[in-house]
Design a protein around this nucleic acid. Structure first.
Lengths: 252, 252
DNA sequence: TAGTGGTCTAGACCACGCG
DNA sequence: GCGTGGTCTAGACCACTAC
């Protein structure tokens, strides 16, 4: 990585810096390698630390870097493909996916969820919390909202553990015939609880996948899953195949 | 919007500030309304402008605010649903979508694109640039890579305008029988050219949708579309239906 | 030209991880 | 305890928009 000073150009310093760093990452660093610390990098490029950080933030947003407080900045591996919309329609928790039930509560859903479920407000629903792990890393935290009409027979077993209750709700749900589903993806920032589950700081960028499951002529369940935007590439259709690791990355 | 000072709490000021502002947006502002400027807001909350900006950045990332240099900060409308993966497989540019061909060049693709197309490197491909408009706003900029094998008969008409050439390439492409397609979504930041097309600054957060189109037993075309992450919610499956406007937003 | 958001600086202190 | 990235400050100047 060069030590050249930045010239006076019309484009912002942090933007130029990002380009320089990006090229250095391609040519002089390998995955997992640790970069010099921010104070040293800033000094080396002759900019304030805040400016350098702006460049690093962008590179982290693009999945090129990973920064951890108390540890350092490392070169991130290519994003992993995570299948979120397969051809065959399946209930959440069916198939060989790495979802893991964490807990289950019975509570009134947020207003927007109640609206999507066409459930009367103030009507409690099962809220199943799940966690998705891929390649040994947590990639998603999900809240699955299941109206009591979709999973009755739950009153008898509230003595079990939360995780057990979650599995029972899922089992009940799977008894219904799934008629269809649709999904939406949007950018968000991790709430405190999701962030903990994803091993990130609150506010970290996430891809929020909202999926509606239809059965018996109504919305039988609603899933709101937040995926780590830095490490994940969400795939729809044929799953998990390697496509592009990034817009401008070298072919491996 | 209150004028209360922030207390000393363990959570970051900008995070608390974001929460306060978010609630104020819900209760005291309506869509399109313009907020006080950053210097005044910072003073009102008793923080440095940089800290205030950190909160605004997050809210903009979540699609709650829109900031324009020289103008001000306004309350953003709910994100619009944009269909990107419909059930029936269709070639790009077929159907009632608002894509508009901008130009077309013949050039060697980036290495990663060449790999995905299973095309020999250094082999030129048609690169069609398109623009997608929804509700009167530009929402996506796309580069569609079409190998010459997928659209021959183009040599005779290179005298036409760029936009006309683009349409011809698309027409050629549509002659093939589409066998399948798959997509991937990931977070990125807008390159300078895409940013201009999207009416944003370079580096703005975008959702990059990479779609492979299969025909004649091979990858017949590859699309890399960058959607404005602040204004768009990408929908897969049944299109465009209103689902959730955000994770915790009030039902309208 | 006035006012806005965007960039940049040179400091300071804090929270966390690791040895 | 030390080094890391995370937060915060109080300024300054620039680029753009609208009048």
């Amino acid at each position: 990585m060069g030590t050249t000073q930045l010239e006076s150009v019309p484009e912002p310093k942090y933007w130029h810096l990002k380009t320089v760093l990006s090229e250095a990452l391609d040519s002089e660093f390998s995955v997992g390698e640790i970069l010099p610390n921010e104070r040293e990098l800033a000094a080396r490029f002759g900019v304030a630390r805040a400016t350098l950080r702006q460049a690093l933030e962008q590179l982290e947003l693009e999945g090129r870097l990973q920064r951890r407080r108390g540890v350092g900045t490392t070169v991130a591996p290519p994003r992993m493909g995570v299948a979120v919309g397969t051809e065959q329609r399946v209930w959440p928790g069916v198939g060989e996916d790495a979802w893991q039930a964490v807990g289950c509560t019975l509570a009134a859903p947020p207003a927007a969820v109640a609206a999507a479920l066409e459930t009367p407000r103030e009507q409690s629903v099962h809220i199943v919390r799940r966690s998705r792990v891929s390649h040994g890393q947590p990639v998603a935290a999900e809240l699955l909202y299941v109206p009591q009409t979709s999973a009755p027979e739950l009153s008898a077993i509230d003595a079990s553990s939360e995780a057990a209750r979650a599995r029972v709700v899922l089992r009940e749900l799977h008894r219904l015939e799934l008629q269809g589903q649709d999904s939406a993806v949007e950018l968000g920032s991790a709430r405190a609880d999701d962030a903990r589950q994803l091993d990130r700081l609150p506010g970290a960028p996430v891809l929020v996948v909202t999926t509606r499951y239809f059965a018996e002529g109504r919305t039988a369940a609603l899933s709101v899953a937040t995926y780590r935007a830095d490490t994940c590439r969400l795939t729809f259709g044929a799953s998990g195949v390697e496509i592009l690791h990034g817009q401008e990355r070298q072919a491996s």
